[in-house]
């Protein structure tokens, strides 16, 4: 077991190192903004005092490494700074820090929860669906069913999320009003109502993700079914059900887990466009809005969170597939 723990520990450290590297990349990228961005935010007509106030507010007078470590230290403690809009507001009213400040953290957390809910609903639909369809297409490969699924999944993968979204809106919101096309979610909503309003974005994500996940599951299973030990199991006269359950599935678990985790990581990206289409109050929409008004602290924070989730999911895939490998679980 020591070997296995060692490998997992190694992966965890690697994950943390990657996250660290990512934080540097994000910081450097943001600092590549031209000139004095306090100036560029306020425009040419701003008074030097206002510019100076912003600079202090954002800590722009310190050296880049100092600022980086302050930011990183803050981020680890959940302090992601204050949004530019707040800083601007304060610089105009002249009030210093304190009072009713909405920090980036406050802004992000409720939205992150919403996004998690959306991703959770999509995953809850897409994972069982994709795995089932993947196994079915692998078992009935090269049949008409398989070919039809191949064409439809390829089409789904190829379509931009907003295309899928508008098709769903067209059929499930406008022509047949089953679900609302705008997802105005707010805190304290009832679960059923919330689910109803989340359904269309969730279905869009499901369509996008299921196709990919299904194809990968299919490939993994086909690969597995071609292995000699499956042939051996058949030649032992076992029932097809037993061959699948007892011989294929234990070995299929690792690839399927990897596929699922990788595609959940993909959800992180997909969520941005989908949230914008359905005006879903999640972190993706916040991110896009902040990008448009160049609210750097928020952009930075969102980016870090997206990357962290992405890395975490990839790491989970890695660790789970290590654990499910009998060779590593039972060393010589």
């Amino acid at each position: 077991m020591a070997g296995l723990l060692g490998i997992i520990l190694q992966r965890l450290l690697l994950g943390i190192a990657t996250l660290f590297a990512v934080s540097i990349i994000i910081f450097v990228a943001v600092n590549a903004l031209p000139g004095d961005f306090a100036q560029s935010i306020l425009g040419q007509g701003a008074t030097p005092e206002a510019v100076e106030a912003i600079r202090n507010q954002l800590g722009l007078n310190e050296s880049p490494p100092t600022r980086y470590f302050k930011w990183l230290l803050g981020a680890v403690q959940g302090d992601l700074g204050i949004p530019m809009s707040q800083a601007l507001f304060q610089s105009f009213t002249g009030s210093s820090t304190g009072g009713d400040v909405v920090t980036v953290f406050d802004q992000i957390i409720p939205r992150l929860k919403n996004t998690m809910f959306l991703a959770g609903v999509s995953a809850a639909i897409s994972v069982p669906l994709a795995v089932t369809l993947g196994i079915l297409t692998a078992l009935f490969r090269n049949t008409a069913f398989d070919k039809a699924m191949n064409v439809s999944t390829l089409s789904a993968i190829s379509s931009p999320e907003f295309f899928l979204a508008y098709i769903l809106i067209l059929f499930l919101a406008v022509l047949n009003p089953v679900f609302p096309s705008l997802s105005n979610i707010f805190p304290g909503m009832e679960f059923g109502d919330r689910l109803n309003k989340t359904m269309l974005p969730a279905l869009t994500l499901t369509l996008a993700v299921t196709a990919q996940m299904m194809r990968m599951t299919r490939a993994a299973i086909i690969n597995l079914l071609a292995s000699p030990y499956i042939e051996m199991a058949r030649l032992k006269g076992l029932s097809p059900m037993r061959v699948i359950v007892k011989h294929a599935l234990p070995n299929a678990l690792a690839p399927i887990i990897t596929v699922v985790a990788l595609n959940l990581a993909y959800l992180v990206t997909g969520v941005v466009v989908v949230e914008v289409v359905f005006v879903y109050p999640g972190i993706g929409q916040l991110f896009v809005d902040s990008v448009k008004i160049r609210d750097i602290p928020v952009v930075q924070a969102c980016c870090l969170i997206f990357a962290a989730v992405y890395i975490l999911l990839n790491l989970t895939a890695d660790v789970l597939s290590i654990i499910s490998n009998p060779r590593l679980r039972h060393p010589k």
Binding site: S227, P228, Y229, E231, M232, A233, R234, L235, K236, G237, L238, S239, K246, H247, P250, N251, P326, R327
Partner: peptide, 25 residues
């Protein structure tokens, strides 16, 4: 009918034993 004979009355020994044993059991 074939399943009832295979493994019971006709058995198979493959070339690569390492690949023909299921690694999970």
């Amino acid at each position: 009918v074939k399943r009832s004979l295979l493994g019971k009355r006709i058995a198979y020994v493959a070339q690569s034993a390492a690949a023909s044993f299921n690694p999970a059991h």
